[in-house]
Amino acid sequence: MSFIKKIAIVGSPNVGKSLLFNRLTGIYAVVSNYPGTTVDVTRGKAKIGEEEYEVIDTPGMYSLLPITEEERVARKILREEKPSVVIHIIDAKNLERMLPLTFQLIEAGLPVVLALNIIDEAEKIGLAIDLPLLEKELKIPVAGTVSTTGRGIDALKGRIKEYARSR
């Protein structure tokens, strides 16, 4: 039994989950633009700071109360694999509708880091999001990212490093 720490990436389909996974691990998984195509769970290794992690790309989920098989699988991973960090990746444009899952993850006692992905698209349509204020409201680390270009990924890794150390 090795005690490698785990990072689970969760979020609804189509928010750039698989791409974030690739950014963190450098291993390619088939990226799908299509809601619900990522049925299989992809795993890879990532080095963040000095620590090596196993990164798990969970199937798309909208809520901790599952409707689909994918959501059941994703919840099972969260419950059974005891991840050291759970990255909840959301579409920054849709913060309002995606926050409820963040709440549920925090409520479940999971070590959540929130990644506001595709933040460039949000900016493009004229949304400005106050990240420090959001952090204060949620009491968890928050980072703005663009997984297609890699913007904000280093900041996200920094937040993960701090977070993993503090827990």
Binding site: E96, L99, F103, A128
Partner: peptide, 21 residues
């Protein structure tokens, strides 16, 4: 869910400055 959504809408209202096209 309604409860959670209200809280989400409250926070979103506070942190998002909006100038949509």
């Amino acid at each position: 869910a309604l409860d959670r959504q209200q809280e989400a809408s409250r926070i979103a209202g506070e942190v998002i400055a909006h100038a949509p096209k």
